[in-house]
């Protein structure tokens, strides 16, 4: 059977199944288990009300626990075993990994990524948000800078492969060098700096995200504060740095952490640009090197990523709880 037909059937089964599940489970609770008969009506309705939230939540909770919560434990457990999964080696995978040059390079590069990409994206996003704020064609400009958000990491990598190409008739960077009489250079092979050329692709994608959020935050600043500053004779730069930035600082932090989390997940760009060669490996792509070959090592890398993410996760939960109060 062609997958597309399976797909359509799956949609139908899933949607109908969900609807049927909710309808039927509600019916069972209301009519069969706790029917509101005259003698114990109040008690039974209360009981049904207690159970009903769990009926609503159950399918989602099922997916979340099997696909996201169990794997955290499962991955850690698997990472304690050797390649074939037969032999328990404790932290052997981690010890082995940390002693290897390849892992250290990936870890170091990932630190570069975590510093550079969120910083550059947030900075550029803020810059564009502020510059386009009062511009007549600001919305068009924003829309165009936002556009890369829709493009896959693989597609974006290919787009930038054109820009970085060695051949001055393909790559615009080398075309510019060529007109100045310089030799073409493969920017993806320049030691150390090649990382930045690859990182810029993610900056290119994420700036739009930062811009959208920060632009909304800038608009949300109470106008009185700005008016007061103007009356006091502040120039535009002072208004921006001393009035606006402090007020949107929490949003800047949110944008920063969101992009940081993303950086720790993206393996596609390195995979498509260099395949991890020329010392450009990062942890997610390093993990994919071992996926299908050495599950013990792969899960160990994944767990390292998980540990790095955990502080942000806790911070997010604390923020969310504070907001709910």
């Amino acid at each position: 059977m062609s997958p597309i037909i399976t797909g359509l059937i799956t949609i139908a089964v899933a949607v109908a199944g969900c609807a049927a599940y909710f309808y039927a489970s509600n019916w069972v609770v209301d009519r069969v288990i706790f029917p509101p008969r005259t003698d114990d009506q109040g008690r039974n309705i209360r009981r049904a009300t207690k159970i009903r939230p769990w009926l609503f939540i159950f399918p989602a909770a099922f997916f979340l626990s099997i696909y996201l919560i169990y794997p955290v434990v499962g991955s850690f457990w698997r990472s304690l075993f050797n390649r074939s999964g037969q032999e328990f080696i404790g932290l052997g995978n981690y010890v082995q990994m940390f002693s290897e040059e390849g892992f250290r390079v990936a870890f170091f590069n990932n630190i570069l990524w975590v510093i550079f990409v969120p910083a550059a994206s947030t900075f550029l996003g803020l810059l564009v948000a502020q510059l386009t704020d009062r511009l007549k064609w600001g919305n068009v400009a924003k829309s165009l800078i936002f556009m890369p958000m829709a493009i896959s990491f693989v597609g974006a990598s290919l787009i930038w492969k054109f820009v970085y190409a060695n051949d001055p008739d393909i790559g615009i960077i080398n075309a510019v060098r060529d007109t100045f009489g310089m030799e073409p250079v493969d920017v993806l092979q320049i030691p150390f700096w090649n990382n930045f050329f690859i990182m810029f692709i993610l900056v290119w994608i994420q700036t739009g995200f930062a811009m959208v959020i920060l632009s909304a935050a800038l608009r949300g600043i109470p106008e009185e504060t700005i008016e007061a500053a103007i009356i006091d004779g502040a120039n535009p730069f002072q208004i921006f740095f001393k009035i606006k930035i402090p007020q949107i600082l929490p949003t800047i932090l949110v944008v920063w952490t969101t992009i940081t989390i993303l950086v720790l997940k993206v393996f596609d760009i390195v995979y498509a640009m260099t395949g991890g060669n020329f010392d450009t490996e990062i942890l997610p792509s390093y993990m994919m090197d071992y996926m299908f070959r050495d599950d013990g090592r792969a899960t160990a890398v994944a767990f390292v990523i998980m540990i790095v993410v955990t502080p942000v996760m806790i911070w997010n939960i604390v923020q969310a709880r504070r907001e709910m109060r």
């Binding site: 939230p53 939540i57 909770a61 979340l64 099997i66 696909y67 996201l68 919560i69 169990y70 794997p71 955290v72 499962g74 991955s75 698997r78 989390i261 720790l264 997940k265 393996f267 997610p284 993990m287 996926m291 599950d295 792969a298 899960t299 890398v301 994944a302 767990f303 990523i305 998980m306 993410v309 942000v312 996760m313 806790i314 997010n316 939960i317 969310a320 709880r321 709910m324």
Partner: peptide, 26 residues
Amino acid sequence: RGFMIAMVVGLLVVPLQIALVPLLTL
């Protein structure tokens, strides 16, 4: 309810990488 919401917020940032091997095995 509060616990479940916190859980969802926490799961928002779980890296997919962690899920790959156990789920494929499953």
